[in-house]
Design a protein around this nucleic acid. Structure first.
Lengths: 364, 364
DNA sequence: TTGTATGCGTTATCAC
DNA sequence: GTGATAACGCATACAA
């Protein structure tokens, strides 16, 4: 409520002297410093950051724009970002786009208005409209989790192609031949890279991945609060015979929805269908970790991206269009197993367990 | 990069006219409006929010200060807050204190510096230093999840006492007589309310809750990234005979750690020990929901608190010291069952399953 | 070591 | 309907 000149008046000095004391810039005699500090305490003076930022043209604020703040993958990234920037005296604004391009543009505009010093962006589309906007306002950007077509924008992500390849290769080695893929939107590079990795693994085994085995949907829950993996798995089950014996889900939420769908259809995992996926949950959260996954180093992704952005902010390094690709970790668990010999050939109807079976227990 | 006067020059008008067009205030002729809008487009002008906020003394920003942003309980609250405020044209800043009072004060100071219009606070301690600071700067506050001693502070939370009572009553009805409590810090009202609820349920059954059966710790993972429930459960198992037959965990993370500890000790849940807890995870995340819980209406808590804060910001309503207490929902699952008759009397050693048993499967 | 003048980009107020 | 002026609170540049 009180301003710098209130303090100045009270301490019998000029506003500049107060400013110097507050910011520890320049020299001030011990006496006046003491008087100023006393006045500050008495008035409960707190500097107005808006005025300071307007004048200095630096907000000491960066923004993290993600597509789904409910997803533990992104909250873990957020931790990595936060830890880095708080240690460097910056604040972090979190923005959630729900994978919606319009929301993203609105947020980016808001961030420019607010003069943030930099932006970490998980772009909803690879089009790059948002970060062209940012660049035109000289706001440093680092892209997280996804590739973008534009040059001169740095990015940090996990090796999606290789992770998908490993997971599907694992399925192939177990003996699976008909493997479906449930992925996110085709406009997100991560979705497509994971399809590519899956396809490569199949082709190396002399198999192919027809489009009919790929189901596109959403990485998020979305407004309906329904995991799209559920719908995609239903589509898969209702597709042409013979049914796949395994399914690769391109992220955690898709896998959760898919497993629920399989469960509802009376199918046992992995007996009737193996499931593998990208992304893991903290092990403790599920009493019995069950899902075979490619685990991304989410915290490190956030931390590395933060560090890179900081280099751009300080000018220590210009954006070079470089990509930092971090390794995944393959975690084999019980959701993947060898297909039963019958499954490899038999028609579908005979194999679906009756709904009142103990499929529930088997999936646990 | 370009300012309002750049636009004014280009359009051949004054800065004020541009301001009027941008903010849709006052009257402007269709002609000049068109000319101004053209100039804005050509220059890619974006207003500087800092200057605007400095002048108008409103930032259209509120802050949500929580004790653990990794906890789905708080991210769900955040969703409720975000949905409300974004719909009203506000931005939300998220701050994470890790239940640390010093961090909290630092954040609150930063928020005052940044002139946020209001704060939603999950206070680390009930002392109330932080919101006295906020109040002295006339920043509206609403407290979430916890009671505070101070008058004239509104709060929104779930009925912890009643929820704990229901959970423990459920255990008593199943036949449990020795029930331990693992809770958070004694300085957090929520911790203590849940102990009180547990005690009341036991006393109604003619039992009592000695201090030796209560273990205090942390609701969070903390820097060690170790769930404190694990340590507390170990303490409980190493305590005096006879061992409890059931345990009430005062939040989700405590329960996760405790279950892991029981698991490691070769104890089966619920056969050797029943477990009940506060807070739930989204059902899909765990393929087989297992834990008996009191589920808090987290989204609603966030939404209600946001709405209340908005009333204070607009001045529609002065803080009255009122508490909004929302109901919990009891969800019975497989982690709680009747104690085996042997357990009620027998000494400990005989009952611990050997470590190489199939306890793992049983807990799933 | 301390103070003065000036401007950051915007809007409130009043004048035309 | 439009413009000139001042002020929001602070820090840069320069002077003393």
């Amino acid at each position: 409520m009180s301003t710098i000149s209130d303090v100045a008046k009270r301490a019998g000095v000029s506003a500049m002297t107060v400013s110097r004391v507050v910011n520890d810039t320049g020299h001030t005699s011990a006496q006046t410093r003491a008087r100023v500090e006393a006045a500050i305490d008495e008035l409960g003076y707190v500097p107005n950051a808006l005025a300071r930022q307007l004048r200095s043209k630096r907000t000491k604020t960066i923004a993290l724009v993600v597509s789904d703040i409910s997803n533990p993958y992104f909250t873990t990234i957020a931790r990595g970002v936060e830890d880095f920037f708080v240690a460097h005296g910056y604040s972090v604004m979190y923005c959630n786009t729900d994978e919606d391009e319009a929301e993203e543009e609105q947020y980016v505009l808001m961030l420019i208005e607010r003069q943030v010093d930099g932006v970490l962006l998980v772009p909803a589309r690879s089009s790059g409209a948002s970060f062209r906007l940012l660049q035109s306002h000289r706001t440093p950007v680092v892209v997280i989790d996804r590739r973008v077509t534009s040059r001169d924008v740095d990015s940090v992500r996990c090796d999606s192609e290789a992770g998908a390849h490993s997971l599907v290769e694992h399925l192939v080695k177990l003996g699976h031949r008909r493997i479906a893929v449930l992925t996110g939107s085709p406009s997100i590079s991560t979705s497509m890279d994971r399809v590519l990795g899956a396809r490569r693994a199949l082709e190396e085994a002399g198999l192919d991945l027809p489009e009919s085995m790929i189901h596109y949907g959403s990485f998020n829950y979305g407004k309906s609060n329904q995991a799209d993996g559920h719908r995609m798995a239903m589509d898969m089950l209702n597709g042409p015979d013979p049914r796949p014996t395994a399914v690769f889900c391109a992220n955690n939420f898709i896998a959760f929805g898919a497993i629920r769908a399989l469960h509802e259809a009376g199918l046992r995992v992995p007996d009737d269908m193996s499931v593998v996926a990208f992304d893991d949950l903290p092990e403790e959260w599920v009493s019995e970790p069950f899902l075979t996954v490619a685990r991304q180093p989410a915290y490190d992704i956030g931390h590395r991206a933060a560090s890179l952005l900081m280099d751009h902010i300080t000018g220590d390094q210009a954006p070079s269009g470089a990509s930092v690709i971090l390794p995944y970790e393959l975690v084999l668990r019980r959701s993947s197993g060898a297909p039963s010999p019958d499954l490899l050939a038999a028609p579908r109807g005979d194999l679906v367990a009756p709904l009142d079976s103990d499929a529930t227990e088997a999936i646990a």
